[in-house]
Amino acid sequence: MGFKLLSKLLVYLTASIMAIASPLAFSVDSSGEYPTVSEIPVGEVRLYQIADGVWSHIATQSFDGAVYPSNGLIVRDGDELLLIDTAWGAKNTAALLAEIEKQIGLPVTRAVSTHFHDDRVGGVDVLRAAGVATYASPSTRRLAEVEGNEIPTHSLEGLSSSGDAVRFGPVELFYPGAAHSTDNLIVYVPSASVLYGGCAIYELSRTSAGNVADADLAEWPTSIERIQQHYPEAQFVIPGHGLPGGLDLLKHTTNVVKAHTNRSVVE
Rank of each mutant, 00 (worst) to 15 (best):
R142M: 12
L10N: 14
S38R: 10
Y135R: 00
A51Y: 08
R263Y: 11
P107Y: 07
F168W: 10
Q229S: 12
Y48K: 12
L217W: 06
L47V: 12
Y12T: 11
H260W: 06
A59I: 10
A15R: 07
V132W: 01
E267W: 09
V171Y: 04
G177W: 03
D52K: 10
Y135M: 04
L6I: 07
A87C: 00
V124R: 02
A66V: 13
G131K: 11
N262E: 14
V266G: 13
A111Y: 07
G240E: 05
V75F: 02
Q103N: 14
F236E: 08
G148D: 09
V11Q: 06
Q61M: 12
P221S: 09
K8A: 10
V75N: 01
S193M: 11
P152K: 01
D52H: 09
A66C: 05
T36Q: 11
E145M: 13
S27H: 12
P232D: 07
H260R: 10
Y231W: 06
V212L: 05
K4L: 05
T153Y: 12
V124C: 02
Y34F: 15
A178C: 05
L73T: 00
A259D: 14
A192T: 12
A259G: 13
A200L: 10
A15G: 07
T140Q: 03
K258C: 07
N184Y: 03
A200Q: 01
D125P: 03
N211R: 07
L83F: 04
L127N: 00
L13F: 11
R167K: 12
V121A: 04
G163T: 08
F116E: 04
Q103M: 14
H115D: 01
T253L: 00
L9K: 11
P190K: 14
T86A: 05
L73D: 00
E267Q: 11
L243T: 14
G148F: 07
Q103H: 15
A213S: 10
G210D: 07
L82W: 06
T60I: 14
P190A: 14
P138E: 08
S205P: 10
I17A: 10
A215F: 05
P138T: 07
A98C: 07
E150P: 02
H154W: 12
P190E: 13
P41G: 14
N184M: 00
T134D: 02
I104Q: 00
L10K: 10
L250E: 03
L47R: 03
Y188V: 03
C199T: 02
D64Q: 08
Y202D: 07
Y68F: 15
S7L: 07
S193I: 06
P35V: 14
A192V: 13
L13N: 06
